[in-house]
Amino acid sequence: MTLLDVKDLYAEVAQQQILKGLNLKVNAGEVHAIMGPNGSGKSTLANVLAGRPGYDVTAGDVVFEGHSIVDWEAHDRAHAGVFLAFQYPVEIPGVSNMEFLKASIDSKAFANDEAQPAAAGFIKEVRKLAQSLDLNPEFLKRGVNEGFSGGEKKRNEVLQLLLLQPRLAVLDETDSGLDIDALQVVAEGVNRFRSDDNGVVLITHYQRLLEYIVPDFVHVLADGRIVQSGDKSLALELEEKGYAWLT
């Protein structure tokens, strides 16, 4: 079943054309790695998929579960099941992590006409998840990402991924700035998330992450388009030869 169909997508940021005819199809149960040199448009793709204000689609389409979502607001896409794990998760002082997670899950439940989870059970579930990701549950009382180390911020992103159980997860360089231990914890979390019902778009600069999260497909993004696709062996080839031979 096709989860995501990106069709000949053109997008610009601050009147600068970044994506130039990008095509990508993700079926349920698949993990797609997007690799590419700096400035090729990887983060722009992530933000365009999530509907970030300021990222304008000028041509083409993004079809998610049969619906064109290019005109949807970011929170509507989130409710439908699009999740973006941020490269640089921002801090929100004064709003506790737990409060934020509850507001998030309640908004999604409300939008989808589902019952909001009872507070007591919810808190228990979140604490358990935090422990499984080596996050001290005390962190849940602190402000969102407030004073978290880089690794803690990324693990917090994975916690949200596991809690919200989206249909499509876009991970924007989740491996950047992580030491090997943190990388393994994050990868383990993503692998736990993987199922036949959901899809993952894994944006990364390095092949290293793919040793832990094994992709079904690897695509090379260069100058706003996908210039090469293959299986996981492509990642190894890139590691060896660099990107220059492709562009």
Binding site: R52, V90, V95, A103, I105
Partner: peptide, 27 residues
């Protein structure tokens, strides 16, 4: 209240109005 903060909230399903109110209440 930065656009990054609002977008983080929005991406997690919290609409901007609710997000601002939550951030201000926290403050």
């Amino acid at each position: 209240v930065s656009e990054d903060q609002l977008f983080l909230c929005q991406q997690r399903g919290i609409d901007p109005e609710k997000a601002v109110s939550m951030i201000v209440n926290g403050f």
